[in-house]
């Protein structure tokens, strides 16, 4: 059982300065699954997510304690370069954020070309593969040179997913990736995620409980920086272990 856990988080705490936002959280995430993190605003789920690729520490006064093991290796071990960690764990943000003044092609290729991988044939091949994986290829194949920002919001978000996929990370983190999108774009991305999980493990923060119920295999409920419950999604939404989870999903607070 333990062998297919790609991420195991052990006693992870994090915060800014005096404030502790994430409190001693432990959980495990299985390979090729979608793990949803839900909870009211300010419950620490986004901060927790940003600890998983060591992006949290880029803020001033940010601190992290505990362990995050990716394929058995602690990414917070001394001597581990956060830049290297981030090349293994992709991330997609709440607002679509294609790089400005870059074409669609350049956006997807950025993770390779900026890090010095410039072989043309290889880069083109990766760009096409990533755009296909992100279900965007057919829509953009004739205009790869147009600016990334010229696409619609939903397309931009899929472009950002393609950009994250291009560096071939085993895990992708998503921070409310559909909250800025319309329902049609949202459902496209949800379908896409269900396809993608065959190849990558996805950890997704969402405010939308139906979304968590629709697409995730495992759901974790956060409250005030603490992890209340991690459960099989079906179990979580039908028969949660904790009364607070039940109150939350039935809309009694949050």
């Amino acid at each position: 059982m333990n062998t297919n856990k790609i991420l195991t988080i052990d006693q992870l705490s994090a915060g800014f300065g005096q404030a502790e936002i994430v409190k001693k959280i432990s959980m495990a995430i299985s390979t090729h699954e979608i793990a949803a993190l839900i909870g009211p605003s300010g419950c620490g789920k986004s901060t927790f997510l940003r600890c998983l690729n060591r992006l949290h520490e880029e803020n001033s006064e940010a601190w992290v304690n505990g362990e995050v093991n990716l394929e058995g290796k602690n990414i917070y071990q001394e001597g581990i370069d956060p830049v290297h960690v981030r090349s293994q764990i992709g991330m997609v943000f709440q607002k679509p954020n294609p790089f400005p003044s870059m074409s669609i092609f350049e956006n997807v290729a950025a993770g390779l070309t900026i890090r010095g991988i410039k072989k043309r044939a290889y880069v083109s091949q990766v760009v096409e593969k990533s755009l296909r994986q992100a279900a965007l290829w057919d829509e953009v194949k004739d205009k790869l040179k147009s600016p990334g920002t010229s696409l619609s919001g939903g397309q931009q978000q899929r472009l950002c997913i393609a950009r994250a996929l291009a560096i071939n990370p085993p895990v992708i983190l998503m921070d409310e990736p559909t909250s800025a999108l319309d329902p049609i774009s949202t459902s496209k991305i949800e379908e896409l995620l269900l396809q993608l999980k065959k190849e990558v493990t996805i950890v997704i923060v969402t405010h939308n409980m139906q979304q968590a119920a629709r697409i995730s295999d495992q759901t974790s409920f956060f409250l005030m920086g603490e992890l209340i419950e991690t459960n099989n999604t079906k179990q979580f939404f039908t028969n949660p272990d904790d009364i607070r989870s039940e109150n939350y999903i039935s809309g009694r607070f949050g």
Partner: peptide, 21 residues
């Protein structure tokens, strides 16, 4: 700010993010 974060999240060092993005 999230443009910079997107660059960092691709495993690009900060100075390269500043320069190339």
């Amino acid at each position: 700010q999230n443009i910079r974060e997107a660059g960092l999240a691709l495993g690009i060092p900060r100075w390269r993010v500043i320069l190339s993005i």
